[in-house]
Design a protein around this nucleic acid. Structure first.
Length: 865
RNA sequence: GGGCCCGUGGUCUAGCCGGUUAUGACAUCGCCUUUACACGGCGGGGGUCAGGAGUUCGAAUCUCCUCGGGCCCA
């Protein structure tokens, strides 16, 4: 035998990784004959670390990609990299000990790009080791000019459509990073804060933000609050600063909170923004972009926010305005990157208009998997209050291709033909309408979601020399970015092409650590894919991804899942090694000479195998990877190894060549189908299997097709009986303390068994099949009411009927039932029950013979020792 | 505070368009080296389905409430 005893996963996986020609996974842009299957793969942020959460998602994608390829689709599984963003800027500053403003923009960009290239390289290595069938001929990198030119052109196109505008607008602002940030980038954390109770001249207010007194533009009270409602319309004087502000009535004020009177500042929180818009209040900016207090705060100007807070509280106390303080739990919005509390400032920003109805209609055209994930998008859409702020005050990002004329102030948006370009490095090639050529560049850059929301269009060939192939077929992504990536992608695809971005969206869960919490650095429960591969194997890791949880739900990482996966491969290897030892020598003979007639147990296996193919296909079509994999594993382990192989050993080792051939042929079919069905999940193992069975790579083969003519209930029933008798005899021997291969004098089977030879082999005993009823007594021992019949028919009486039936003597009930309807009396009423209403369980008594009697699903089996 | 999801033996989980003795895995216990596998085989113990109320002849399965957990958001 040439097959090694041990399956050395790392050796074999590395062998195939080095051998595979990855061009077999390339999408064929010119192919019109096969249906396309384009996957809008998520472009990860190049942190240098392809983590376990990415890996789960990519496993799902790879299962689908490989399966669809085998089914004959022209599959594109591209790989992108979403490069732009603050984390890289922060890291570069850290590594080089600089701040981005100390060196020229282009130089800083270059440092970011270099770091990103290195990080991408590391992540690619992990992906290759995990065996993903990525189409590297369709890789894209958003920081490359040939990608970000599309971001810029999309900006210009949407500007031309009137869907982009500039406006002074409240924005979430991180004073540390000195940039506007999106809601998606705001993190919330519970913190203690002080609620300060202040005397205004006519009423009392409570505020957590006294440092914003200078920005107070109104005081709000609930119009139903009798303590204060006479003040509505009057003005009150702001302590320390002395300016007069209006008292307004608004039902959103909670009279039971604080004093029931709230000061409105521009801007203390989101509620201030709502009131500010609703009541058309003036704007007073008390905080500047650097997080410093402005001139309007007089002597406090130039202080930081905490400094100012302290000083103002001190002064309020001194002047007698502050009369109480209470501790309050508060959720503070923070910059997700640096954890600095965010402020709401009013700044000039670029925005993309959001058309909620368009998003919702498009979402309805998309198949959501699981379906309920759509609800999250819908809920988010319903609560959108601001448009999408797309400008960022950063450097490493796609530049906004805009200039401002220094003479007349005209906004000059680049023409598409000028792109890509960076306005801070180049002047526009034409003069302004006013004739001036003196321009001020737009220094703001675009939100990185502006890049990544184009991936679906990009991979489908948008703005390229290739044929446009949108919509794509599948968007796989996590549920954490439905309100960002999914939302923005739908918006952009619809706006720019009028089409939905994808036919289906497959949403995966988060990966939880073994402690049940989301994996995170701060919790210290991180496990890297490399760690798992090194200890077990990539295929085992992939099996965890498949079986660890159902699609869409969060999946816990558990070492024991990986261990059990690795055990399965050991078992599978053993099955394979055994099978091949009986096939190898004359494989082509076995394959090419189909036996004329197969034994019952062969047909039983093939019926089950074809049923398996059907169910696995069905599960994969529904993206139920766990279901699919579990049924493959169950078939291989229980049906094939524990039962079929045991039953056919006597034929495989026997002298009857025809009998041996039928078993060999059946085994071959099982090995071939199993290697193909395992291919999407365990690409390395499956390839190793297939390498001794067929020609070429298993990943270039077709998906097995079920032969329904081989599926037969009666064959399954007959095979099941043989299997069950064998299993019962095994148990009998075990319970009697006999060795499992110990011969019995005789086994008598009362019934039709067809062929007993496999049973003879597996039991190592003589088997006699006897027609007709055995000469033994059947004693009814239990009456089982059939609720499916009794329930709907008798409704309210059902309970009493069951009670009566089960209290009767089983022998008597069986006797009556054998003659016809069963008449019973329930609550004084006569009731007729059809014989089908009860199931009578019987026991066979050996009636004095010195034998043991087994009841195998109603078939009597007599054991003579 | 809102939205969505979830709560089944020690652990994780299937079932959940209702039908009476609840699936599987891991763990645990006992037996077994039988010519593929002891990272194996065979057999056993263990849960009344978070708690409560309701609908129903009948609920893990439907409804409501309470408690607990997760994710997203305010």
């Amino acid at each position: 035998m040439t097959i090694p005893k041990e399956y050395d996963s790392n050796e074999i996986e590395e062998k195939w990784q080095d051998t595979w020609d990855m061009s077999m996974y390339h999408f064929d842009w010119k192919d019109e004959s096969r249906p396309q299957y384009i996957i809008d793969t998520p472009p990860p942020y190049p942190t240098g670390n392809f983590h376990i959460g990415n890996s789960l998602n990519w496993c799902y994608i790879d299962f689908v990609a490989r399966y669809k390829r085998m089914q004959g689709f022209n599959v594109m599984f591209p790989q992108g990299w979403d490069c732009h963003g603050l984390p890289t800027e922060v890291k570069v500053e850290e590594i080089h000990g600089i701040t981005k403003n100390q060196i020229p923009r282009t130089e800083f960009r270059k440092l970011c790009e270099e770091m990103t290239v290195g990080n991408i390289e590391k992540m690619r290595a992990t992906m290759l080791r995990l065996g993903f069938s990525t189409d590297w001929s369709n890789e894209f990198i958003t920081m490359d000019p040939d990608y970000y030119v599309k971001t810029q052109r999309s900006f210009v196109k949407m500007q031309d459509m009137g869907r982009v505008y500039q406006s002074e607008h409240p924005v979430n602002w991180c004073p540390r990073c000195e940039t506007a940030i999106a809601f998606a980038e705001v993190e919330y954390d519970a913190r203690d804060t002080k609620l300060n109770f202040l005397h205004f001249d006519k009423l009392e207010i409570a505020t957590t933000r006294p440092e914003l007194l200078a920005a107070c533009v109104a005081v709000a009270i609930n119009p139903d609050d009798e303590r204060y409602n006479e003040n509505i319309g009057q003005t009150v004087k702001v302590p320390l600063f002395g300016h007069e502000v209006k008292v307004i009535g608004d039902k959103d004020v909670d009279p039971s909170f604080g004093t029931g009177a709230v000061m409105i500042c521009t801007f203390g929180d989101k509620q201030d923004v709502r009131w500010w818009v609703e009541h058309d209040l003036p704007l007073r900016k008390a905080i500047d972009k650097n997080g410093r207090i402005t001139e309007i705060a007089g002597k406090y100007a130039g202080m930081t926010i905490p400094e100012c807070k302290e000083a103002i509280i001190e002064d309020l106390k001194k002047e007698g305005y502050l009369y109480d303080q209470k501790t309050l739990d508060q959720n503070v919005g923070m910059c997700w990157r640096c954890k600095t509390p965010i402020e709401i400032l009013s700044e000039r920003q670029w925005f993309v208009k959001i058309d909620n109805d368009e998003i919702l209609e498009t979402a309805d055209e998309i198949e959501w998997l699981p379906e309920y994930m759509k609800v999250r998008l819908q809920n988010w859409t319903g609560t959108m209050e601001w448009d999408w702020c797309i400008s960022r005050q950063r450097i490493f990002a796609t530049p906004i291709p805009v200039w401002y004329c220094k003479k007349c102030g005209e906004v000059m948006v680049a023409e598409e033909e000028w792109l890509p370009m960076d306005p801070t490095q180049e002047q526009p090639p034409v003069a302004c309408k006013c004739g001036s050529t003196d321009f001020e560049p737009e220094e703001d850059v675009l939100d990185t979601w502006m890049d990544s929301s184009l991936t679906a269009l990009h991979v489908a060939g948008w703005l390229s020399d290739k044929e446009m192939r949108n919509p794509t077929q599948l968007r796989p992504q996590g549920h954490d970015i439905i309100r960002t990536w999914a939302f923005y992608s739908i918006l952009r695809s619809k706006a720019l092409t009028g089409k939905r971005p994808w036919d289906s969206i497959l949403v995966n869960g988060m990966v939880l650590g073994e402690d049940g919490h989301k994996m995170s650095k701060s919790l210290g429960n991180i496990i890297s894919p490399e760690e798992v591969i090194a200890k077990y194997s990539a295929d085992s890791f992939r099996q965890w991804a498949a079986v660890g949880g159902s699609t869409g739900s969060d999946v816990m990482f558990r070492w024991k899942d990986v261990v059990s996966a690795s055990r399965f491969f050991t078992k599978m290897w053993s099955i394979y090694r055994f099978s091949m030892s009986h096939l190898e020598d004359d494989l082509s003979d076995i394959v090419n000479n189909k036996p004329e007639e197969l034994a019952i147990i062969d047909r039983w296996l093939l019926s089950n195998l074809n049923r398996l193919i059907m169910s696995v296909t069905e599960s994969l079509d529904a993206y139920q990877f766990d279901e699919a994999y579990k049924s493959i594993r169950g078939f291989a382990w229980e049906t094939l190894a524990d039962n079929y192989i045991e039953l056919v050993k006597s034929r495989l080792y026997g002298d009857d060549e025809n009998a041996r051939r039928t078993a060999q042929y059946t085994l071959y079919l099982a090995m071939d189908a199993l290697s193909r069905m395992l291919a999407p999940f365990a690409p390395f193992f499956a390839e190793e299997m297939y390498s001794r069975i067929g020609e070429g790579s298993v990943h270039a083969q077709g998906w097995p097709e079920a032969d329904e003519s081989l599926i037969s209930e009666s064959v399954e029933k007959d095979g099941e009986l043989i299997k069950e008798i064998a299993s019962n005899v095994r148990r009998y021997k075990s319970e009697s303390g006999m060795a499992l291969n110990a011969p019995l004098e005789k086994i008598e089977v009362y019934g039709t068994l067809g062929d007993a030879s496999d049973l003879i082999g597996v039991t190592n005993s003589t088997v006699e099949i006897i027609e007709g009823e055995p000469d033994f007594e059947h004693v009814p021992v239990n009456i089982k009411p059939n609720m499916g019949i009794i329930g709907p028919k008798f409704r309210k009486q059902a309970g009493a009927i069951i009670k009566t039936l089960t209290s009767m003597d089983p022998v008597e009930v069986a006797d009556i039932a054998s003659k016809g309807n069963i008449s019973i009396t329930v609550d004084g009423e006569d009731i007729e029950l059809e014989p089908e209403s009860v199931v009578i369980e019987k026991e066979v008594i050996s009636a004095g013979r010195a034998v043991d009697v087994l009841d195998v699903n109603g078939t009597v089996v007599v054991i003579v020792r």
